[in-house]
Simulated assay, not measured.
Amino acid sequence: MSDLLERLRGRGWRMTAQRRVVAEVLDGEHVHLTADEVLTRAAVRLPEISRATVYNTLGELVSLGEVSEVATDGRAKRYDPNAHRPHHHLVCSRCDAIRDVHPGGDLLADLPATERFGFTVHEAEVTYRGLCPDCTRT
């Protein structure tokens, strides 16, 4: 489970009702919602929340480094609250379901010097693609 709410409280982030609801919707494991999905779920809890408030809050959470934006194949950005634990993503090619994965090894160390082309590499992102169990059955 993500600890987004605890991290935000620890930072002294001003927790309005709207911000709290957005953070609650995002908090959890394997959460990768679009802004519209966040809005839909937040509106169930707080019907008066506006689209602008959701988008502004997501932007602020990304700027704070508390939530990461995840883009897959030019589709809508998704928001990942698991921003403080390095991980990769497993994406279903059919339904776009996303799961966090934590494989072993050091991707930076695995990149040979001959393949770095003079770059000083400080980060690696990996996206695994395939079919989720639900899509495999259909």
Rank of each mutant, 00 (worst) to 15 (best):
M1L: 12
S2K: 09
L4M: 07
L5N: 04
R9S: 12
G10K: 12
G10I: 09
R11W: 03
G12T: 07
G12Y: 10
A17S: 12
A17L: 13
A17V: 12
R19S: 05
V25G: 05
L26C: 04
G28N: 09
H30G: 01
V31D: 01
V31A: 04
H32T: 01
H32P: 10
H32Y: 14
H32E: 11
H32S: 03
T34V: 02
D36E: 14
E37M: 12
V38T: 08
L39N: 05
R41I: 08
R41Y: 08
A42H: 08
A43V: 02
L46W: 10
L46Y: 11
P47F: 14
I49H: 03
T53A: 15
V54P: 07
V54E: 01
V54L: 12
N56V: 03
N56M: 13
T57N: 09
T57E: 09
T57F: 01
L58T: 05
V62A: 07
S63R: 14
L64S: 06
E66H: 04
E66C: 06
A71C: 07
A76K: 15
Y79D: 02
P81H: 02
N82H: 06
R85K: 06
H87C: 03
H87T: 06
L90S: 15
V91R: 14
C92S: 05
R94S: 14
R94P: 00
I98F: 13
I98L: 14
R99E: 15
D100P: 00
D100T: 10
G104R: 06
G104P: 02
G105H: 04
G105K: 00
G105V: 02
L107D: 05
L111Q: 12
L111C: 13
P112H: 06
A113S: 15
T114L: 01
T114Y: 05
E115Q: 11
F117K: 03
F119Q: 00
T120F: 00
T120H: 07
V121G: 02
H122W: 06
E123T: 03
A124Y: 01
V126G: 02
V126L: 15
T127P: 00
T127C: 09
G130H: 03
C132M: 06
C135G: 08
T136A: 13
T136K: 15
T136Y: 14
T138G: 08
